[in-house]
Amino acid sequence: MEGVINKSIKVNKYHVKNRIVMPPLVCFNWGDDEGFEIVSRAKHYGDRAKGGTGLIIVEATAISKDCRITDTGLGLWKDQHIRQFERIADSCHPEDSVVILQLVHAGMKSVGKNVYSSSNVEVKDKECLEMSLAQIKKVKEDFVSAAIRAKKAGLDGVEIHGAHGYLLSQFTSKVINKRNDIYGGSLDNRLRLPIEIVKEVRAAAGDDFIICYRFGVNDPTLEEDRYFAKELEKLGVDILNVSSGIGAENITVPEDYPFSPITYMGTEIYKEVDIPVICVYGIKEPKQAEYLLENEMIDMVAVGKGLLADPNWTNKAINGEDVNVCFHCSPWCKYGKDGKTCPWYGK
C-alpha cells in the first residue's frame, strides 16, 4: 500500500515525489496588519517538508491590502514581502518538496467596511458594490504582480484561488454574478475573469512556472464544472485543486460513497481532464488516502488538518506508522484562532 502514496507524479517540469499535498491552510493571527509574518512560516512549512510531503501549497496570500481574508494574513502586494517567501522556499526545497503559493482576492468576504464583488451584494455590516471595469483590470494586474514576486522568491508556482466563495468564485457563480457586461450573464462571460488571469499569469511567469487553480465546485449538476475544468486544461493550467464553491452544499453523492461531497466532486473532475487533480476535505488518515489512490479515483490527496496535527504525517503514512489523528476540536479548529493552541502543536 505504501507504494501508492509514494509514487511520484509530474507537474509541469517538476517530479513531485509522492501523492500527498499540504493544502493552503491559513494560520490565523500569525501575521501583522501589513501582511508580514510574526510566526515563522519557514519553520511551519519546512517541518511538513521534512515530514515527507511532496507538494506544499502555502496559505492564502492577499494580492492587495484591501482584499484580505483576514487582517493578520500574509501579503504579497509589495516587494518587501518577498523575503518571507524566500525563507519558505529555502526551507522546503532541500527536502525535495515542491512548494507553490495560493493567491487570493476575497471580494465581498474581504476585511473592511467597503468591499467589492462581481455585483452589488447585501453583506452584513458592509457595503459591497459591483466592481468597475477599471477595478477588474487592477485585480488582474495584482494577480500577475504577486505571481511574479512569488517567482522571484524562488517558489515553484502559484495557486489561483477560485473557490470558497471568494472573488473569482463570485464571478463564476450565477447566484452572485448579476452583471450585464462581458463579465456576466453567459457561462463564458462569468468565466472570463479567471481565464484572463490564468492567461496573463502564464504570459508573465513563463511556461516552467506551475499554475494551479483552486477549483470551487458551484454547480451540483457538474455540467458547468466539467466545462470550466476542460477550459482551464486547454489554457495550460498544470493542476486542479478541487474544493467547495458557492452552491456546494447542494451537491448530491451516491448513498454508498465513503467520503465527503467535496471529495466526490474532486473525483468527478478527475474523470474529465488529463492534468493532475487534487481532492480534499476530511482526509485525515493514511487508509483514506490509500483508498482513493489505490482505486485510481484521484491523482493526489490533500491532507489538511492531518498535517497540522502531525508534520510527519506523510513519512509515517509511507512507512505504515501511526499518525497523530486530529482531535476535531470544538467548536472549530484551534488553528482558526492560533495554531499554538492546537493540542498537537510542538509534539
Rank of each mutant, 00 (worst) to 15 (best):
F171D: 05
P94G: 00
A89R: 06
G107L: 02
V104F: 10
S119M: 05
H105G: 04
V104G: 07
D90A: 07
G165H: 12
S132V: 06
E130I: 00
V139D: 01
V98C: 00
A134Y: 06
M131L: 07
N177P: 12
V111M: 05
S91W: 07
Y116D: 02
V175W: 14
D156I: 08
D156E: 15
S97V: 03
C92W: 13
K124Y: 14
V158M: 00
L133T: 14
Y116S: 10
I100N: 06
K109C: 04
H93C: 04
A106W: 02
L167E: 02
N114E: 15
E122S: 03
G107N: 11
K124F: 12
I136Y: 06
K151P: 12
I148D: 00
S132T: 15
K126Q: 15
G107V: 07
S91T: 09
V98Q: 04
A150Q: 14
D90P: 05
I100A: 05
K124H: 10
L101A: 01
D156N: 14
K138N: 13
G157K: 02
V175K: 15
V98D: 05
S117Y: 06
I136E: 10
G162W: 12
K151W: 12
A146H: 11
E122I: 04
H161T: 03
V111L: 01
K140A: 01
D142G: 10
S117I: 10
V104R: 09
I136F: 10
E159N: 02
S169N: 15
G165C: 10
G112K: 06
V175T: 15
S97G: 05
A163M: 12
L133N: 15
D142M: 08
L133Q: 13
I100W: 08
G107C: 08
S169Y: 11
C92V: 15
Y166D: 06
D125R: 11
Q102S: 13
S110V: 04
N114C: 09
D96H: 07
V98F: 03
S97K: 13
I160Y: 06
A89E: 10
E122M: 01
G112P: 09
G107H: 07
S145W: 03
E141D: 11
E141H: 06
L155P: 13
V158N: 01
H93P: 08
V144C: 05
V99M: 04
V139N: 01
